[in-house]
Amino acid sequence: MGREVSESCVESLMIEMVSSYCDRFYATKPELAARRIEAIGYQVGHQLSERYTMERPRFSDHLEAIKFICKDFWSEIFKKQIDNLKTNHRGTFVLQDNRFRWLSHISLDPSPDGSDTSASLAENKVAQAASMHLYFPCGIIRGALTNLGIPCAVSADISSLPACKFLCPGLFICGTYKGLG
């Protein structure tokens, strides 16, 4: 218990994983790459949730489980908690991390044809690259929640947040669908 891994190693691994799936294995099918990355995240989340809930009382409802994800789970992984949690009380939750670690060191490869690309195009590219890196944490959240008995769909959204270079916000939207409550 309590073994730690160098953050830079984790980050390098993450970046390498994303780039291998996007540029090598499924270079022509970005959707498939995204699905694969998300599936890896799912497994990781599944296992982590098993471990991190070990000494805890059971959750009585969905909100409690989500809060667990926001606080304890997030701080186990990122050493910080989710900054903002919103819900519409109908099963959808929005988790906002104002400084998402795994995006904080991302920078864009300067494009080779470079000089006259417009700013909006570059921004678009950054968003695209960042969204590729968000499939893994999405999978983690989905795996954890599913394992806690809350099947859900998780998507990440960075476009709706102000694009600030230094804050690197990550926004996760968990749509749960409840059958049995």
Binding site: D61, H62, H89, R90, G91, T92, P151, C152, A153, S155, I173, G175, T176, Y177, K178, G181
Partner: peptide, 12 residues
């Protein structure tokens, strides 16, 4: 008990 939600998986 939790109020049933109208969201399906595809209603994201």
């Amino acid at each position: 008990s939790i109020v049933a939600s109208g969201f399906g998986p595809l209603d994201i």
